[in-house]
Design a protein around this nucleic acid. Structure first.
Lengths: 225, 225
DNA sequence: CGTTTCTTTGAATACGGTCAACTCAGGTGG
DNA sequence: CCACCTGAGTTGACCGTATTCAAAGAAACG
């Protein structure tokens, strides 16, 4: 991992990140660019530290068996990943993979831990982050367990729009591959495809290449109820 | 809620609980007994504080629509519940319901928060608790999203045994109602029933009234792979 | 230009949810 | 004591949804 000094003044990430992260970012002297599809860290390996997405898009995922995987979340610019590994057991329960050309800031585990012991504001921040992530995780558990495919896909599209925003024409700014969409919704490639084209016919969605726009939010939300 | 002084010396809970909780328990002067089926707190209501299970069994659950519910977890003696409500948004994302005669210790939200600001050990503890809970939650997300019914039911039985233990004959110490088992495994009453009786025929499980013993752990674990 | 990878569609299949009925135990009231 | 009711446990049959398999078409890539 290439070492560079993270200059706070010109640090795009730092201007968009929560205040408390700034306390530790001067220590993030290691950063690296990951190519599309490259793995940032892998489930089952020892936790090296915390990672911040400086630029790009990352998927957080778990494997099951040889073929199946579930994407837990997508993380974009300004988000901290790898904090799940800060639990007592220092083994990553999840993997992170770059979906685009992605720049990652890295903070050593030991440094982060010692920082937590002296910087109370940081600890509080992390506590909030955990609490929020846990709430989202449990809400999603309900979605995956109880809703049918339409509900899950609908939920995913609304999440993507909420999280990454849409351009002036309503197209969601970031659309992962269909394969990844399926892995997020807990279904198969073909089923996602069928669901999306059905909604295109019903004028609920519009397409432009791979990009998706939500035309009728109300009918989409109906599937999640 | 009836006020009683929580005498630490005679507090069963305190002898079995993590050290750090002791710091706040002297403040838990309110405790109450809940009858079987009684709701401790409800999803969507303002967060009043943190709750500790002193004695009994509690389910943590979320509703979806009118009929469907998912049980996120079961909590027994010594466990803290309601900590999910300590997030920035002070509204419970989940409900808690007593499954047995249950005694609950209660700590005010404001007190708990101010305690977090001065007691670093407590904060660290809570951080660990969150990290662990999040890991479990995400593992369960994968289970619910990717495994078939057998995998989910199997996973549930193994969890119950791990969490609540088994008696000398191998019968799991706590078995919730079949209805609740179904709500935990994300399936229906009938399907849980069929799965369990199938496994009884195959000598993987044994029954004694409502109680269940795992006879062949290996074959059960095979369903989760 | 051939090869690979992704997209699109059709058809077969299986899993699991829904509905209905039947049993059985326990409680209630005549 | 019996008739009735209720609710949980048990089982069978049916059917819809979503997965799986297969194959053809389109696009990307060396």
């Amino acid at each position: 991992m290439k070492k560079v000094t993270c200059d706070l003044a010109s640090c795009l990430f730092c201007t968009s990140c929560p205040d408390a992260w700034r306390d530790i970012l001067p220590a993030a002297r290691t950063m690296r660019t990951f190519r599309k599809g490259e793995e940032i860290f892998a489930e089952g390996t020892p936790v090296s530290g915390a990672y911040f997405v400086f630029e790009g898009l990352v998927k957080i995922h778990m494997a099951w068996g040889a073929q199946k995987q579930l994407i837990l979340n997508f993380a974009g610019k300004g988000e901290m990943i790898g904090f799940r590994g800060l639990a007592p057991d220092p083994v990553f329960p999840i993997s992170a993979t770059a979906l685009d050309e992605t720049v990652i800031c890295f903070v050593e585990r030991a440094f982060f831990q010692s920082m937590l012991e002296v910087n109370h504001r940081l600890t509080q921040r992390l506590l909030d982050l955990y609490a929020r992530t846990l709430q989202e995780s449990e809400k999603r558990m309900r979605t995956l367990a109880l809703m049918d495919v339409r509900g899950r896909v609908s939920d995913m599209l609304l999440m993507l729009e909420r999280k990454f925003g849409a351009d002036s024409e309503g197209f969601i700014c970031i659309i992962p591959s269909r394969q990844d969409l399926a892995a997020y919704a807990g279904t198969t490639y073909e089923t996602v495809f069928r669901t999306l084209s059905e909604w295109e016919e019903e004028k609920i969605l519009a397409f432009q290449g791979k990009r998706i726009a939500i035309l009728d939010r109300t009918r989409l939300e109906d599937y999640t109820r």
